[in-house]
Design a protein around this nucleic acid. Sequence first.
DNA 1: CAAAAATAATTAGGAATCCTAATTAAATTC
DNA 2: GAATTTAATTAGGATTCCTAATTATTTTTG
Lengths: 225, 225
Amino acid sequence: MTPFDAITTPLPRRLREGLDRIAAAMRADEWGVAEEAGLTPTQLHALTFVAGRGDAGMRLRAVAEHLGVTQPTATDSIAALVRKGLVIKLPDAQDKRAVAIRVTQAGCDVVRAIGLAMTSAERALETLSPQEQQTLLDLIIKTIRALQQAKAIPPQRLCVTCRHFRPYAHEDAELPHHCALVDAAFGGRHLRLDCAEHDPAPQPAREAAWSLFARRAPEPAGPGA
Amino acid sequence: MTPFDAITTPLPRRLREGLDRIAAAMRADEWGVAEEAGLTPTQLHALTFVAGRGDAGMRLRAVAEHLGVTQPTATDSIAALVRKGLVIKLPDAQDKRAVAIRVTQAGCDVVRAIGLAMTSAERALETLSPQEQQTLLDLIIKTIRALQQAKAIPPQRLCVTCRHFRPYAHEDAELPHHCALVDAAFGGRHLRLDCAEHDPAPQPAREAAWSLFARRAPEPAGPGA
DNA sequence: CAAAAATAATTAGGAATCCTAATTAAATTC
DNA sequence: GAATTTAATTAGGATTCCTAATTATTTTTG
């Protein structure tokens, strides 16, 4: 405990504020990207989410939770996307109360076109060294997982919660992990945040894999590039 | 280059998406916090920003840039805060076009009351080990600085761009940096993102300090707590 | 120094976001 | 089978947030 600890705001507070500053830049970015496609930022987020889930068809509730808004707000935004022909709403086969929201071909095209754009946030993140980027990915995953466990965000399709994930299955420090689905080794820099092939591991297996993963650190961030 | 590099989206893209997920949680948090004070999230952000600058009086433009919105939008939000008596608008002495926006006593009280609340984002960040938190702070600072240099966000009052900052002035690995203003040693975990005493260093000195700072890494993130 | 250009802020107008509360319909639970 | 929960929408309204145009002032420049 040094004098500075007493006069400095708690570290988690400053981390949140820092993430907030980065979020402000991302928010400003979004108008530019979305408008090219004739969308608003919220609509673009919703469309990207729905498109990422392919033909399965998302529930409205899932969209709302992903965006962090209420169901009526999600109704608004999805209605706008339906009007623009980028998604369609189909009756859900299992549950007659629900709808299955699916991306259309036009919607796919829009997502693909926009995916090529590079935001200023991404350009900023690119200035970090590869090692730093990997370290940041690791910390982001840990934070997302904590948010997920606290039910502050819905379950994400993370490698680290997947049935096929085998942390530190290999000696190779470069590619220590293993994906049992594709049966291949991969590294910390390849860890996904939203894998289409994600299959949730049962709770006990997940805990075991997580504790094995979390207690091993990536290489130190090292000097800048 | 492994097979996985080819089938994985670029790391900066995934980092942005991850930050986006965390931002979604923060956005959802904000309604809860703001509503207790009878504010909207945007108003709370604006108020916090103005309050953080004390009696100097902020320009409207600075508020808009901080929030990442246009001037008319900032006019809206500041007008709401004026109506609620949390800030006042005074004519700027130097420039008759401009206004000086200052927090009132009531506004200070609101900020103080809200400052005690802990968001789910902060609780999630708290689950990281102290070492991981410090590493994350370091990476956030680097990202903010890159955004700042790209003019994607306005200048922040970071230690690392301050006239009084002396990176790695001490041997002590725990407290390597030095603040010439208070003439005391401090550590990476104490680095500020918005210091009231910030005094921008001239460009050459800033570059020199930055390169000295950026090329030294914090300790590895190490095993989780 | 006067004209031109840039800047600070507001106004006007309108679409979209986003909330709470209430409603409808279907699925679950007991 | 009744009561509860859940999925989604509707209703109503405040706020956000944009672009474009306006006013007033400052700065630049010829």
